[in-house]
Structure formats: structure tokens, C-alpha cells
Amino acid sequence: MENKEKILEVENLCVSFHTYAGEVKAVRNVNFHVNRGETLAFVGESGCGKTATSKAIMRLWNPPFVEIKDCSSMKYNGEEIMDMDKKRLQALRGNEISMIFQDPMTSLNPTMTVGKQIMEGLMLHRHLNKEEARKEALNMLRMVKIPDPEKNLDAYPHQLSGGMRQRVMIAIALACEPSILIADEPTTALDVTIQAQILDLLSNLKKEMNTAIILVTHDLGVIANFADRVQVMYAGQIVERGTTQEIFTEAKHPYTWALLSSVPALAKENKQELYALKGTPPDLLLPLNHCPFAARCEYCMQICKEQNPMETELTGTHKVSCWLQHPDAPKVESFYDRRKK
């Protein structure tokens, strides 16, 4: 964390899905920044806006069904992404900001060799000719530790295992040495042993290339090992953010407590039943002018159902949006701490 230069600043990001039922406000006024070379994790349950946010950064959503509202601002290296034209966006994607996706089984073109798929970006952004690109692609395969890279360069995706395919995806994404890599649940579709390998690989490459990573996940275990900072998302908003340390040891938001309590502890003497959060997230089709978590919160107060809490700054890095932080609010003991005892 020696380098604190902000590579990406997102302000007031609002993403809406226009469905037959109406407008679903999937991301609501989200603010955050990413420093050069750090790993920022988004965590939250399905549908909380993690993927919507990360795809919005690359403007990968297709209008008119998905709309990034005009009020949003995303500055990459000081340059407004919202104002970029098609050409500039194409130069940005895969070159300055890359993305890897959840399911490596379907994210590669089945009729194109792995090598060609890696070469594509290199030829496009770094203007290499075929031979140079092939050489570079071979290097990339070595870098992501694919065995027998010469042979696998000409393999088709179906000839590789899931873990190998995700390595190929990483090779594609990192080929042009982007400043930011968005990893949208990169290990969700892989089995546990492979997950660890992929994460190790990512964190090594990150150090080598000084690439910032935005890690989207619902796996707290992944975050604990891997992220520098964490943002907890719920119903399209960031409810708590802080360093990984802060989130795991000093969480203040009841939703974060619920997330932490839902992780099985591997202690032998632990006979405690695993915590399950009751209820479902609010319907994002409906207007939401109060705390989104109010309906499921154990500590819900009158004010929680009436107004959305402001973000309270606890330390320079740790911020939480919860009425419990209000000076007049009762002091409560976290059920997460209670369960740990």
C-alpha cells in the first residue's frame, strides 16, 4: 500500500435495468475509488449490484435495456469514462481495464484456439504482428503456469479443464498489462483446490505487474486472503467499507455481521449451527427511501424504516452506513461477537 495514487474514482454511480415490470435500480449512488496496485473486493449476496457495478466501469452494458445514469461519474486516471466515445472505450477495454468472468467454461470462444484468443488483444492494442503476438501469447501461457504451453497454445478451449480455462482467461485479460483487472467471481465456478491456485496466481501476477484488482465475490474466505480493502454491498448500495482487517475484526454493519456469521468455522469443538440470515433483499423495482436492510435487521429502529442513513466515517478507511452509528442510537452488541464467544 505504498502507492496511494487513485487509478479509478467512481462517484454517484447509478445503474438501472429497464425490464417489462419497470425500472430496476440495481446500483444506487455508489462511490468508491481504487488505488494503483491494490485489491479492492466487492462482497454481497446475489443481486446486490456487484456485477452491475463492475460491468458499468467498462461500459459493457448494452443500452437501452441497461442504463448508466447521467449523474454517474467514473474517472479512470482522471479521464471521465462516461464521456468516452466508442473508439476510446475500445482502446480502454482489454488494454487499460480488463475483466475476467465467472464461468471459464463459457467465457472462451469454442471455435477459436486459445492462442488466437490471447493474440487478438495483443494485435489490437499493442499492434504486434502475428508472429510477435504468438510469441507473447506463449509467454502469457507460461506466466499463468499452463503446462506444455507450446502445445496448449493451439488447443481449443474444450480440450482444457475449467481451472486451465480460467488461467487462459487471466492470460487474455493481463496480456496488455492493464492498470485495472476486474475479476467477477473468478473462482465461483471452480472447485476449491483450483480456487486457491487461481487466487495465488492472481496475487502473484498483481505484484509483478502492479495491476489493481477489483475482486467481485460472495466468498469471504477469498477476501480474507486476498483483498486490501473490502466494500460490502447490499441492495445496490455500499453499506460498509474498510480495510480487510477492519471488516473482519471491527465490522459495524448488521449486514456485515450476518455475512461473517454465515461462514462455517472449521473448529472441531464448534457445534454451533451455521447462521442464516432470514428474509430476502428488498425488491429493487420499488422505491427505497430508507435503510435497505431495515426489514431483515435484528436491531431495526423506527428511523431505519424512514430514512436512509448517511455514511459515518469511523477511521480514514472504515465507513459504515447505519443508524446504529448515530450518537443517540442504543449501543448494541453484535450478534457476530456474541456467537464467537
Binding site: L60, R93, M169
Partner: peptide, 22 residues
């Protein structure tokens, strides 16, 4: 609708390249 089309787009290919190549 396939994921690999999104991958291609995320690589920075133009719409025309995405369609003709992928």
C-alpha cells in the same frame, strides 16, 4: 448472448470484429 461474446467485447474489439470473429 454467450459469455464469450462479452469476453470479446471486453478485449476491446469493435462491434464489427466481435461479430465477424466470434
Amino acid at each position: 448472448d454467450q459469455d464469450y461474446v462479452l469476453t470479446a467485447k471486453a478485449k476491446g474489439l469493435s462491434d464489427f470484429q466481435v461479430i465477424t470473429r466470434h
